[in-house]
Amino acid sequence: MPMIKVHKETCKGCELCIHACPQEILVMSKVLNKKGYFYAMVEDPGRCIGCAMCALTCPDVAIEVGVQGTRYVLYEY
């Protein structure tokens, strides 16, 4: 099972990951982080397919992707 983790203090709230996610499982927070940005959070982790598009498009390396059990490689990277 894939899972993603957003480091909320690293996030600058650009929202690129929100649009990159084909499953639309990321949303923006309603509260600010220490830098003063609304940060990305995973709303529906169960629907994550582990494509890592969110992490790929994050300019601040704020997203880590992990997998438990079988890993599906969706593309060469």
């Binding site: 899972m3 690293t10 600058k12 709230g13 650009c14 929202e15 690129l16 830098k35 940005y37 582990g50 890592a52 992490a55 790929l56 498009t57 994050c58 300019p59 601040d60 390396v61 997203i63 880590e64 992707v65 992990g66 997998v67 438990q68 890993r71």
Partner: peptide, 29 residues
């Protein structure tokens, strides 16, 4: 849990001065 995507070793653990959403960060990574 096996991490399949995280910060590369060649990139320091610091926040950049780049504006939010600037693609410099992706290029660096």
């Amino acid at each position: 849990i096996e991490t399949i995507f995280s910060r590369p070793e060649s990139l320091r653990e610091v926040s950049t001065h780049y504006c939010p959403g600037c693609t410099h960060g992706i290029t660096h990574r």
